[in-house]
Design a protein around this nucleic acid. Structure first.
Lengths: 344, 344
DNA sequence: AGCGCTTACGAAAGCGCTTACGTAGCCTAG
DNA sequence: CTAGGCTACGTAAGCGCTTTCGTAAGCGCT
């Protein structure tokens, strides 16, 4: 909306450097066909004048769109805001603009966001958060993204597979295997799982990890109650209530993410159930507040900020023939919310 | 970066509707000079075809820039991410793009972000977070913003005054007055303040509130230790350690935001100091996790999400002659982290 | 009927960039 | 010495919109 003519334009820089518009453009966007000497002069003038290219003109003229669209489930969920912070950091370094949208964990809303970003001509799309089990949704998202790529768009996803694009992938299965193993080693057998809404692939993967840990010890997943609620603190509270009510013999609760674990702890406290003496609780993600809870939360650390950085870096690299997968690594962080199973 | 020619353009809509480019443009951007009948037809065609205007072309051609720049101290701090979520929500409704930058609580970084946003030609700038006591920084920021406004840009700030622009303002003074009053009513006299880095106006305001509450009861602020650290959980831990060490007689800690309060609680737990039996703790902001802490945190509720919404709405309204101020309201939320002063 | 005024629309000129194409100037090969 | 090729740069044609300006049509008035 700022009035035209009032801001520094490329032509001003060009004139001041004594070159043509085209040469100045080439020099500043690092294209070849300019001698080092001239390029240096142009860059010096631009810096001196404080020139910043008009991103609208640049994009319109066919340069790469400099905005990256980031789709998350929920901006004010620490898991996603830490990812966002990583994305924003790299974007700032690269001179890119980040547009964040949230889908509220609704697959159709996510699809709408995706389409809107594409229609808006963003250059890069990053999708963070679990995929959905609904094959229609995944297929449509996949189709939309691959068409976007065909037209030159860049894409990467975080914590989500099956979209046929570059992905930054935490090993959800191994993580929850470690978590369950930790509880089993502590002697817990009456373990309940507090899971988010059914239909998220992340949930299936994390449950599979628990199952694997059980099998390793000759036990079976079928014996464990799984309560599906919502991947939020509120969801954790609901799940905990239900577990306490329906499975009072439970000695350990695996919350499939930290938000739920916080809700679970909160409910246990309300019921005066001491953690970890009477009940152990584990989470997943290691959001930064996890260490400051009372009791501090045993969980799997995922490097969320780095995941955001990796995803954008991946998208910025030239596309490979086949989708690349970057594992994130993870770490079992044992804190005060877990202890030996009560002996009785 | 998507290839040109492949996406729907305004002219496609215009042709399909049997009108000229100009008319289609007017119809879709709601400008006058088009009959209701034609405008309706154009809009119908656009909807049917799924047309979304190219924001780069639109902006370049002199339309209002559709991106709003949001400057926050820290994206992955819940206080700011809740604000951001409000901004994003309204922006989505208005078809605007949100660009988030963080300054890391460094006034010079903030100034750089501001200048960069302006150079990038965003249409709206929102600045969230406390102002700085440094008159040079504030003056420069103010000058930058007013020049931006002179050129047609829209501005609003959140929780910050003295910038000469529309502002959404929590009453920090009244909030901490209520907080301190609550503690005084509980009989606490040995109160310590855990404050963020010196030089933030928010801190001065919140301390002033405590001072007012004391004065009301014939007491004096000078008697209270104020420990300056950092507006983060880590800062809270540091401040708590120092308070425990230098002022062991303390029975209540006022953390000037929730992040610090979380750190304070964490440190007290590490020292096996029971809250609230031996020490009461209060925070400020009511970030959503505050209710789920152990013990749950007594704090002042600020409607962060609404504040984000209000700020953008304010910026979207036509400018008033004088800067507008929107108070946010606040609420003392008493939870489990506060109790009567120990009797000894 | 003729005048001015308003309204609804179209033609065309940019917005500030990138890039295809053209053209000097120089180098190398024949 | 010239043909051909390369490099370094300039010229100009857009990218998809908004907006100014021009004009035809419709209106009421004298």
């Amino acid at each position: 909306m700022p009035k035209p003519g009032t801001r520094l334009r490329l032509i001003d820089v060009a004139e001041r450097a004594g070159v043509s518009l085209a040469t100045a453009s080439r020099a500043l966007s690092g294209r070849e066909g300019v001698s080092e000497e001239v390029a240096g002069r142009v860059r010096a003038v631009a810096r001196e004048l404080g020139y910043v290219a008009n991103p609208y003109a640049r994009t319109l003229a066919g340069g790469a769109s400099s905005t990256v669209g980031l789709v998350v489930h929920q901006v004010d969920d620490p898991y996603f805001s830490e990812i966002a912070s990583g994305v924003i950091e790299v974007a700032a370094e690269e001179g890119l603009l980040v547009q964040i949208c949230h889908s509220g964990r609704d697959p159709d809303a996510e699809l709408r966001q995706l389409r809107h970003l594409i229609a808006q001509r963003v250059g890069i799309i990053l999708v963070a958060g679990s995929g959905y089990n609904d094959p229609r949704v995944e297929a449509e998202a996949r189709a939309e993204l691959s068409e976007f790529q065909r037209q030159g768009g860049r894409v990467a996803v975080i914590g989500r597979h099956a979209l046929g694009v570059d992905a930054v992938l935490p090993d959800n299965e191994a993580g929850s295997r470690a978590l369950a193993g930790h509880l089993l080693d502590l002697g817990h057998r009456r373990i309940a799982i507090a899971a988010g809404k059914e239909g998220l692939t992340t949930i299936a993967d994390r449950i599979a990890g628990v199952s694997a840990a059980l099998r390793q010890r000759g036990l079976d997943l079928d014996s464990l109650p799984i309560v599906h609620s919502d991947f939020t603190r509120g969801g954790g509270r609901v799940a905990a209530e239900q577990i306490l009510c329906d499975h009072p013999e439970t000695t350990a609760i695996i919350a499939l993410n930290d938000a739920m674990a916080i809700g679970v702890l909160s409910t246990l406290r309300a019921h005066h159930i001491p953690v970890p003496e009477r009940m152990s609780v584990v989470g997943f993600d290691d959001v930064s507040v996890a260490a400051d809870l009372a009791p501090s939360l045993t969980t799997i650390r995922l490097p969320m900020t780095d995941m955001g950085k990796m995803a954008l870096s991946l998208a910025l690299k030239p596309r490979a023939a086949r989708p690349r997968r970057r594992p994130t690594g993870h770490l079992l962080v044992v804190r005060d919310s877990t202890g030996p199973a009560p002996s009785d």
